[in-house]
Structure formats: structure tokens, C-alpha cells
């Protein structure tokens, strides 16, 4: 469990983190969202013991990061932003070094290295200097060092930044496949990632937590949640009739008048009513579906309120 209590961090005059508190339980995958400069990386740097808090406390699995730093750090795997590593080494040497620091010796050390090499698919680049590797491989080396000791807590700062879609997919699968009793905190500004891997989405803006709920709840905060979209084959004056349906708050029509989105009041389902109306009026429809909430819209709304 990670427990963060009244955490603040100042850089000179600037307040990067402003009195935040939250706890993360084992089994949670927490997505840390927020605009650039909101304080995501700063928080992660404090949880891992790289930066000292200006005030407040952080405990990781019961160990205070300020006073029992080493004990806490033994339980954490960390991928810093940009996945820095010793680029003059090759992945085999580098992972061997990390395993040795983590206290593995001899056969066990080689076995741990072999294991993460397989997990992250690094077999083909083992003896190349890290500085010559592509961005994707460097990121995977960074992830490999973070999971080598099978940590209770995994903290990944933008793990999929700069990866191609296939690599993103792999990394997300890796995160999902971690055993269920771990804590994972990932920061990202890719919203689809949150729905794809996280059980909890925490939005931070201007150093404060502005939203903390599950990705599904976050989606339901969107005005598009439960909305119904129709693609009409031909242009119709359907908007007025749709807006008269009970429970409909607004109908958005695109420029050609063929794409209509029916928004609901208070998130109730209106698919049935819309469907009935379509049949009743015998409109020719190409597609008719219920919208999911749009996370980017919720994200923008929540973070812009703060600014």
C-alpha cells in the first residue's frame, strides 16, 4: 500500500505539488493524468525517494520513504521519465548491474536477467550498446530494469511515450499481466491508455488532485455518456423531432445534417426511444449506436476549470 499524506513540494517560489493526499491499495493500477507541468513526475520522484518533499509524508508498504528510504526503495521498481540508463553498457551488462544492486548473485542473477529479457523481448539486442538502440528498445530496457526484482510497487513515468502502436500494445499487455497483488502507478497523457490498463484514474492539475475515480466513472462524467448517434443515409429534418423525445437535452447536428448526436439528460438511456422514433418515421439509417463518454472532453473540462 502507498499512503501519501498532505504532500507538498515547492521549487523556489513555484508550488509544484500543493497538499495532496491519497492512498493506493494492492491490486490497483492507477493512471496519473494531467497536463504537462501539472506535477505528475514530481509526485513520482518523491514516491521513489529521488526528491525530498517540502512537507508531508509518503509510505510505501509501511516504510517511510524519508526515514526508511532503502527499505522502501527495495520494494519499488521505477522507470524515470525518458527511461535514462547507462548508455555505454549493453542491455546484458546493464541488467546484470541492476540485478546485482538488487542483491541477486550468481545463477539467480542470470536467471532474473534472462527472465526480463524474455518478457521485454530484448534477445536480439543483448550485446549492442544501449546508446545505439532505438527509442523503443531503450524504453524496453528501462522497463526491464524496473521489473527485474518483481517489485510490489511499480512506478512508470510515461512508459509508452515514443513507442510505436505495436510496442504500446506490448507494454500495456505487460502491465496488465502483472500479478493482481501489485501496485502500479503510470503517468500518461494518452487517455486511451487509462481505459486500456487502469483501474483508477487520478487527474492532477496545478499540483492538486482534481478528480479521482475509475475510468468508467470518468467516462460517465462526459456529456456524451449514453448519447446516441445516428448516421442518416439522406439529409432529414430529424433534429427537431429527436429533441422533443423525453429525456433528450440537446441534439448536435454536423454540417451536412447527416450525423446527429442525441445527448441525454442526467445520463439516462434513450437508445430505445430513438430507435422507436427512427422506425416510426421510417428514416433511412446507416448506423445507430450508443456513445461512450469522451475522456478527452472530460479531461479538458476538469483541467481547464482549475486553470
Amino acid at each position: 500500500m502507498i499512503e501519501i499524506v498532505n504532500l507538498s513540494r515547492h521549487f523556489g517560489q513555484l508550488t509544484a505539488i500543493d497538499d495532496i493526499s491519497f492512498t493506493v491499495e494492492a491490486g490497483e493500477v492507477l493512471g496519473f493524468l494531467g497536463p504537462n507541468g501539472a506535477g505528475k513526475s514530481t509526485t513520482m520522484k518523491m514516491i521513489t525517494g529521488f526528491l525530498a518533499p517540502s512537507s508531508g509524508s509518503i509510505s510505501v508498504s509501511g516504510f517511510d520513504i524519508g526515514t526508511q528510504t532503502i527499505e522502501a526503495q527495495k520494494r519499488i521498481g521505477y522507470l524515470p521519465e525518458g527511461a535514462p540508463c547507462y548508455e555505454d553498457m549493453n542491455p546484458l551488462q546493464f541488467l546484470g548491474f541492476i540485478a546485482a544492486i538488487r542483491g541477486f548473485k550468481g545463477d539467480e542473477q542470470q536467471q532474473k536477467v534472462a527472465q526480463v529479457v524474455t518478457t521485454m523481448g530484448l534477445e536480439s539486442v543483448l550485446t549492442q550498446k544501449i546508446e545505439t538502440l532505438s527509442k523503443g528498445f531503450k524504453r524496453r530496457v528501462g522497463l526491464a530494469q524496473a521489473i527485474i526484482h518483481n517489485p510490489e510497487v511499480l512506478i512508470l513515468d510515461e512508459p509508452t511515450d515514443g513507442l510505436d502502436p505495436n510496442q504500446k500494445h506490448q507494454v500495456r499487455n505487460m502491465i496488465r499481466s502483472l500479478s493482481k497483488d501489485k501496485i502500479v502507478i503510470i503517468s500518461t497523457h494518452i487517455l486511451e491508455e487509462v481505459t486500456a490498463v487502469c483501474t483508477r484514474a487520478t487527474i492532477i492539475a496545478n499540483g492538486k488532485i482534481v478528480s479521482d475515480c475509475s475510468p468508467a466513472e470518468l467516462e460517465s462524467k462526459s456529456r456524451y455518456a449514453h448519447a446516441v448517434t445516428l448516421h442518416l443515409t439522406e439529409q432529414q429534418s430529424a433534429a427537431t423531432k429527436l429533441s422533443e423525445l423525453p429525456g433528450v437535452s440537446e441534439v448536435e447536428v454536423n454540417e451536412e445534417g447527416k450525423l446527429l448526436t442525441v445527448l441525454t439528460e442526467g445520463g439516462q438511456s434513450i437508445y430505445e426511444q430513438v430507435n422507436d422514433l427512427v422506425r416510426q418515421e421510417s428514416w433511412q439509417v446507416d448506423a445507430l449506436y450508443v456513445e461512450k463518454g469522451r475522456l478527452d472532453e472530460v479531461f479538458r473540462k476538469i483541467t481547464e476549470e482549475v486553470v
Partner: peptide, 14 residues
Amino acid sequence: KSGSIELLMTLPIT
């Protein structure tokens, strides 16, 4: 400069 200090200082070493 390279940022590897962040890695080094978050490893369990004094």
C-alpha cells in the same frame, strides 16, 4: 546530464 542519476538514486543504495 543524462538523467541516469535518477535511476541510481532510486536504487536501494545509500
